[in-house]
């Protein structure tokens, strides 16, 4: 009976993993194909079923005449996503701590309303925000710039950071803050010396969400830039001309998800430690 359950369990895992992994494998094999191999039906195994070509990968680093240069969009995406995430996490963490520990009141507006205000920004469909953002950046002269994108992404990522961190701080006993203050810390000292060092798992989760959302966003990267600044998702789409270069597209897709996959592996290992256990029993 035990073996049976085990078999079922692994079968389910296997099914699910293949569902997840197959697209990657498909993209990987496609990235080594050329036009010939693509059009001759579904093939999987290099050398046996098709002759591998490095054309797709090479095109990513060309000067633009035969493909597209991936380096600039990659750097732009990295700058925008990382800066916006850092700013959003910093502001979001401070806001979340304030909202979880102090009472604010402005007329009928209380902590919960402020929290909802943050989160509600993610409820609106992006298209609603696109026009105001466009006009704001235009007025500021920040359209088609890295700074403009960072600004917009901070606004988009902040709710995520606040959301994750409020939940996280809510699970840290208030007595821990009190203890720090009893032991001589001012509230800000209690935050930096005690609460923050114990919030690393929360910061990591929030950071990961921000990086994923920021890195993968196409819509705002597309509407708020023209020619000077291009981010990865937009660059991928721009590959698609009259003849779709599937090999370049696949190589491009793989190389753009690579950092996220790497981060996910690192973070998973880190999060499983559960370093908050033992704060309170």
């Amino acid at each position: 009976m035990r073996t049976f359950y085990l078999a079922i369990k692994y079968l389910a895992l296997l099914l699910w993993s293949s569902f997840i992994v197959f697209p990657f494998l498909w993209a990987l094999s496609t990235s080594f194909k050329d036009a010939n191999a693509i059009t001759s039906g579904a093939t999987y195994i290099p050398w046996l079923q098709f002759e591998p070509s490095t054309q797709g990968w090479a095109s990513l680093f060309s000067d633009g005449s035969t493909g597209i240069n991936i380096v600039d969009p990659y750097i732009n995406s990295a700058i925008v996503t990382i800066s916006a995430s850092l700013i959003a996490i910093t502001l979001g963490t401070l806001a979340a701590y304030g909202l979880s520990r102090f009472e604010f009141r402005a007329g009928f507006i209380k902590n919960n309303d402020i929290t909802f205000f943050f989160i509600s920004q993610r409820i609106m469909p992006p298209i609603v925000l696109a026009i105001p953002f466009f006009l704001m950046l235009k007025t500021l002269g920040l359209l088609d710039t890295v700074y403009g994108l960072i600004l917009v992404y901070v606004a988009l990522l902040l709710p995520i950071a606040v959301w994750v961190m409020i939940d996280f701080f809510g699970n840290i006993p208030r007595e821990l803050d009190e203890l720090a203050m009893i032991d001589g810390c001012r509230p800000i000292g209690a935050f930096f010396r005690v609460i923050l060092p114990n919030s690393i798992p929360g910061l990591v989760v929030a950071g990961m969400f921000c990086l994923i959302f920021g890195w993968n966003d196409f819509f705002f990267a597309f509407t708020l830039t023209f020619t000077k600044v291009q981010l990865l998702p937009v660059a991928i789409v721009s590959l698609n001309s009259s003849v779709t270069p599937w090999w370049s597209l696949s190589a491009f897709a793989l190389i753009s998800v690579a950092p996220l996959v790497l981060i996910a592996f690192l973070v998973e290992n880190f999060l499983s430690k559960g370093s908050l256990a033992g704060a309170i029993r």
Binding site: E175, E178, L179, G184, V194, P197, S275, A279
Partner: peptide, 18 residues
């Protein structure tokens, strides 16, 4: 509180986890 220089032990076991 941080200037009162008093000490306290809670009924829950509270320590600095880090």
């Amino acid at each position: 509180v941080w200037e009162r220089k008093m000490a306290m032990v809670y009924q829950q076991f509270i320590n600095y986890p880090h």
